[in-house]
Simulated assay, not measured.
Amino acid sequence: MPQIEKILLQTYPTLPEDIACARERLRLFPDGCYVLRSDGSDRIFGYVVSHPWQDLNVPPLSSLLRSLPISPEVYFIHDIALLPDVQGIGAAKAILAQLSQVARRHYIKKFALVAMPMAESFWQSRGFRIVDKEAIRTTC
């Protein structure tokens, strides 16, 4: 977790989230939490935190969930953080492929996430569409 927290603070310096959120999500849904490392290395280059959730009911930043929904409507990508060394090499594409398999195993057909403004085009190029930003912004 110390390496994850370091990456979190480095990739999102203006939106620091309590590392307790990542710990809780890992405990609640370990199938949706991964780290990215090179073969044979202990160094972590990125991580992903994701879990089943309710449609457009975005958990507020730095909040604990306490539990996951019994009948989830979407597969929520809470966080993908990659260090600059691994950006642009296809890591996000591989992560999305892996998360798609997890979602299918849980019979979830839709994904949801909240993107930083500078990442909107990245997500749109991967098939995500923008929904009512104001509705989501009020929940964060």
Rank of each mutant, 00 (worst) to 15 (best):
D39C: 07
I80Y: 02
I7K: 01
L99D: 03
P117E: 09
R66F: 14
V48W: 00
S67R: 11
S71H: 14
P30G: 04
L68D: 08
Q10H: 14
A112F: 04
L36G: 12
V131F: 10
M118H: 15
K109Q: 14
I7S: 03
I44P: 02
Q54H: 04
K109W: 09
Y12N: 13
P52S: 05
Q54Y: 03
D79S: 08
L68T: 08
R27L: 07
A135K: 13
C140R: 13
D31K: 07
P69A: 04
F128D: 04
R126F: 12
A135T: 11
F128V: 06
R27A: 14
P52N: 02
K109F: 13
S38G: 07
D55K: 12
L15H: 14
V35Q: 01
D55T: 07
V86L: 04
Q98G: 05
L56M: 10
C33Y: 00
H51R: 00
R27P: 00
F111L: 08
L15E: 15
A81K: 06
D55S: 05
R104L: 15
R104P: 04
R23I: 09
I108A: 10
L65V: 07
Y12P: 02
P60V: 06
C21A: 13
H78N: 07
M116E: 13
M1L: 09
K6N: 11
S71G: 08
F29H: 04
F111H: 05
R37Q: 15
M1T: 10
D31N: 04
S50Y: 01
F29V: 00
V131Y: 09
L28Y: 02
S121H: 10
R104W: 12
V131H: 11
C21E: 12
L82E: 01
L36V: 15
D18E: 12
E5M: 06
H106S: 13
T11K: 13
P13L: 11
Q124E: 15
Y75I: 10
S100C: 12
Q10G: 09
L82C: 05
S67M: 06
F128T: 07
S41I: 05
L113C: 07
A81N: 06
L68A: 08
M1N: 05
A135E: 13
R25L: 03
V48R: 00
N57A: 09
D31A: 07
I89M: 05
P16Y: 10
N57H: 10
V58Y: 14
A81Y: 01
F122V: 11
Q54M: 09
H78P: 03
D85I: 08
S100G: 15
L82I: 01
I7G: 03
P117M: 01
H78T: 02
L9V: 08
P16L: 05
I136R: 06
V58Q: 00
E17V: 13
G40Y: 05
R37Y: 08
R66T: 12
D31Q: 08
A20Q: 15
D39I: 11
R43M: 03
S63E: 11
A115E: 02
P16M: 07
S50T: 02
G127M: 10
D39L: 12
R104Q: 15
G32V: 00
G90N: 04
L28R: 00
L56C: 06
R66L: 11
F128S: 06
Q3T: 00
P2C: 05
H51I: 01
T138I: 10
D18R: 15
L96V: 02
L26R: 13
L65E: 13
A81S: 15
V114Q: 10
D55M: 05
A94F: 08
V35E: 03
I77E: 04
N57I: 13
D55W: 07
